[in-house]
Amino acid sequence: MKKIIKFLDNWEENVITVLLPLMCIVVFLSTVFRFVKLPVMPWGEELARYLMIWIVFLGLGTGAKKNAHFFVQILINVMPEFTHRYINIFRTAVVTAFCFIIILLSAQLIQAQIMMGQISPALRIPMWIAYLAIPVGCATMIIRSIQYAVKDLTGKTK
């Protein structure tokens, strides 16, 4: 049971750990095939692109979980110590609101993609699968940002 909980707690990192080497292998094979005059993999570049998109958007949650996203640290440094938690709460609220808006807009985009039935040129997969990375990544960023803010408020981030 503990392994399942640990896996779910780190699922973004686990998926990225699989997708990144897969992307590297596809790019490597596509390059080798091109230079040794083997049959070209027309789907290689497209698959690598979609894997990169998923890696980036899943990385949003991983970065938020570790509080590794860009933040103007000078704002924290010039403010008194007692305001730091309030600034972090405000930052979490802004990130949550922004990601929520992106989720709503991307849901409309995905719905339009499903209705149009657009498929990718080389892989012939539905395009909404590639676009699904946007709301999934933003949702994980919301969850992980709130998770970090709660840890920060309770003093468990150290």
Rank of each mutant, 00 (worst) to 15 (best):
M1G: 14
M1N: 12
M1K: 13
I5T: 13
K6W: 14
D9S: 12
N10S: 15
W11H: 14
E12M: 10
T17F: 04
T17N: 11
L20Q: 07
P21C: 05
P21E: 05
V27N: 07
V27G: 09
F28T: 05
L29E: 12
S30Q: 06
V32L: 01
R34T: 13
F35M: 02
V36R: 01
V36M: 02
K37E: 03
L38C: 03
W43T: 10
W43E: 08
E45I: 02
E46W: 01
E46V: 09
M52N: 14
M52Y: 14
I53L: 12
I55L: 03
F57Y: 12
F57D: 05
F57G: 09
L58P: 08
L58K: 08
L60D: 00
G61C: 13
G61W: 08
A64G: 10
K66T: 01
H69N: 13
H69D: 10
I74L: 05
I74N: 06
L75F: 04
N77W: 09
N77I: 10
V78S: 09
E81H: 10
T83V: 14
V95M: 01
F100W: 05
I101C: 11
A107F: 01
L109E: 06
Q111Y: 08
M116A: 06
M116R: 08
S120Q: 14
A122V: 10
A122Q: 15
I125H: 11
L132A: 06
A133F: 00
I134Y: 04
P135M: 03
P135I: 02
G137E: 02
G137T: 02
A139W: 08
T140L: 03
I143V: 15
Q147I: 06
A149N: 11
V150M: 13
D152R: 08
T154K: 15
T157Q: 11
